[in-house]
Design a protein around this nucleic acid. Sequence first.
DNA 1: ACCAGGCCGTGACAATTGTCAGAGGTGCCT
DNA 2: AGGCACCTCTGACAATTGTCACGGCCTGGT
Lengths: 202, 202
Amino acid sequence: MIRILLAEDQAMMRGALAVLLGLEGDIEVVAQVGTGTEIVPTALEVRPDVALLDIELPGISGLEAARELAEQIPECRVMILTTFSRPGYVREAMAAGAVGFLAKDGPVEELADAIRRVLRGETVLDPALAAATLRAAPNPLTARERDVLAASENGSSIADIAGRLFLSPSTVRNYLSAAIGKTGTRNKTEAALTARRNGWLA
Amino acid sequence: MIRILLAEDQAMMRGALAVLLGLEGDIEVVAQVGTGTEIVPTALEVRPDVALLDIELPGISGLEAARELAEQIPECRVMILTTFSRPGYVREAMAAGAVGFLAKDGPVEELADAIRRVLRGETVLDPALAAATLRAAPNPLTARERDVLAASENGSSIADIAGRLFLSPSTVRNYLSAAIGKTGTRNKTEAALTARRNGWLA
DNA sequence: ACCAGGCCGTGACAATTGTCAGAGGTGCCT
DNA sequence: AGGCACCTCTGACAATTGTCACGGCCTGGT
């Protein structure tokens, strides 16, 4: 029996996947969590063979959890299951030690088979997605630029961001200006959107 | 047998729900679509008892499709299944003639039962959500303000929006200013975000 | 020890954005 | 006919944002 830990924030999706995987004769969902924070503690307890992680979760992200799992439970294979096939996500997932990357816009039928394949030691990654990721520019933003962009995502003013990050408004404006240049956009809102779309934030 | 039409853009979610509902002895998923545009034509063809519609779909939205279904196939019950329990969505769904509103963050187990209940003529709507919707202010934005806000969601400049909507920049600025006032925000980005969050757009 | 690159800041300037006070026009309701 | 709500536009002004050029402070690599 393949023991699975399933991390997904949308309860209905989580439940549906759990039932579906449970129908496979050789797969057993031994734990389900709805937040990123629960992933590592739960995994330490149940010792799953495969962790199936969404990226965008409350608490820590699935990518961060993947890094921690790789460190603390190296024998547990990590597979990322996400809504967005963003180049930055694929890159980060692989860097975090994931051995599988599946998009939620693919057919469900692939899921169980993908799990079996990663357990056999194979890497599951759509070749077209891999190529697109390699073709796409890697994250050009510095850590500080990422911070500032992330802080601007809710439409905050520069003064707000400066206050929140304990920086001077001028500095924030400089970082934003740099980010606008690097993203090839025209203002901070566009910059934040494209950075997010490319998976360059969080 | 209860005949279901399932509209949901995320293939994995759609497939999982279809399998799950198929496991129920009295339910049969007779059609699955991934875009809003396909809903009405498909429904006209297969004549489902219940249409289970996501709101945010490519093409037309589930809410628009619900309105059309109510007109063209009044005997087909419409149930909305959505990620976001936005007050504006609930309000619009009910106004569009939907008899059920389910959030994807609820348990899957409720789904089949909810379908049976709407078919018996009951209305399925979480009482707490209904109360929150009634408590929340109804959409205060005029049609034009909505247009302008929606056009500003991607971070476009006022000049861009004006060009796209064939309005003068001054007019766009006025609408945005009005929207900022009505949403109680400080700039167009915040205004667009809160309007979207409340389900006041599209 | 030196340099490159990142971090933090300043000041000045131009462009964009947000506010306010107008002034018409339409269509709907009473 | 009049009132009302909405649409469209203008011009002026203040505030915010974006750009540029600059200087200083660390840190890691050579």
